[in-house]
């Protein structure tokens, strides 16, 4: 009797500590997804939903012997370029519109127009006006993201603590230093939020842009697989990009955020 009770307590302790470790839960969640996928593929038993194993084989095949890395590189380059442009322009306009009331009134209508224009319309118009080229593609993606960055940064600029800026003024800190050390740090949480939302939106739009008007990149390949009804390759290419994006999130964005927030966590 005593032994059974002892066992029971021990077991509870095990499950408790298992679920307390967030990595365990993450692995469990991943395995569960894999299990659902595998079972569905087995039950459906059709090319429409290939099994994880098939996808993995194609994934490695394409990566080592195929063109996957080339197309991946092209797409990543477009994402990076469009992201940088959208962040710079969006942040600049956001700060300007957040601090200058008249400028905000002037540009707000245009901003709402752009914010509500469907991505597809912007892409088609850019291709029609600038031709089926790289500049049109990057412009189209950036234009889709700029209004979102602008909204976040404008809110951030409005939330700036004037009292902190007054400190810079009474101590006669020069303008550049005031901007970098007294103004921008207050905006960092907003910039990070815009960046995080930005990168996921941008790579989705880049694929559409590639599908509609470029002859390389992941989006172009996906279209090709769609025409050939090659769903397994479609999965493999998607997997490649999702992997990269997860890497960007955990290896780049999260560490930067942690560094910027050091004073909060302490």
């Amino acid at each position: 009797m005593v032994k059974i009770m002892f066992n029971k307590i021990k077991k509870n302790k095990f499950t408790d500590s298992f679920f307390k470790n967030s990595i365990n839960v993450r692995i469990l969640s991943f395995l569960l997804l894999l299990f659902i996928w595998e079972t569905s593929a087995f039950l459906i038993n059709s090319d429409v939903l290939p099994s994880p194993k098939t996808v993995l084989i194609i994934f490695f095949n394409e990566m080592i012997y195929g063109e996957m890395l080339y197309h991946l590189g092209i797409t990543l380059w477009r994402v990076l370029l469009a992201f940088t442009i959208a962040m710079l322009v969006g942040t600049g306009l956001g700060i300007a519109m957040g601090s200058k009331k008249n400028l905000n009134i002037m540009l707000d209508g245009w901003h709402i127009l752009l914010l509500n224009t469907p991505a597809l319309v912007i892409i088609i118009l850019c291709y029609v006006w600038f031709g089926l080229n790289e500049i049109a593609a990057i412009t189209a993606v950036s234009l889709n993201k700029i209004p979102n960055v602008l909204v976040t940064i404008r809110e951030g600029t409005r939330a700036i603590d004037r009292k902190i800026l007054e400190v810079a003024d009474v101590f006669k800190v020069n303008y550049k230093k005031k901007f970098i050390n007294f103004f921008l740090p207050q905006l960092y949480p907003f910039i990070m939020a815009a960046a995080r939302g930005g990168i996921s939106l941008i790579w989705k739009i880049v694929l559409v842009v590639e599908l509609l008007g470029r002859s390389n990149g992941i989006g172009f390949k996906l279209n090709e697989f769609f025409n050939l009804f090659d769903i397994a390759s479609l999965f493999a290419y998607t997997l490649s990009f999702v992997t990269i994006m997860i890497f960007v999130e955990y290896a780049i964005i999260t560490p930067i955020e942690r560094r910027l927030n050091k004073w909060r966590t302490n």
Partner: peptide, 21 residues
């Protein structure tokens, strides 16, 4: 200048807060 509140930059260390001006 010293304000009614300390008005330090929360993202800077004590040393940086003093030397930044």
């Amino acid at each position: 200048y010293m304000f009614q509140e300390p008005r330090l930059m929360p993202w800077l260390t004590v040393k940086q807060n003093v030397s930044i001006v």
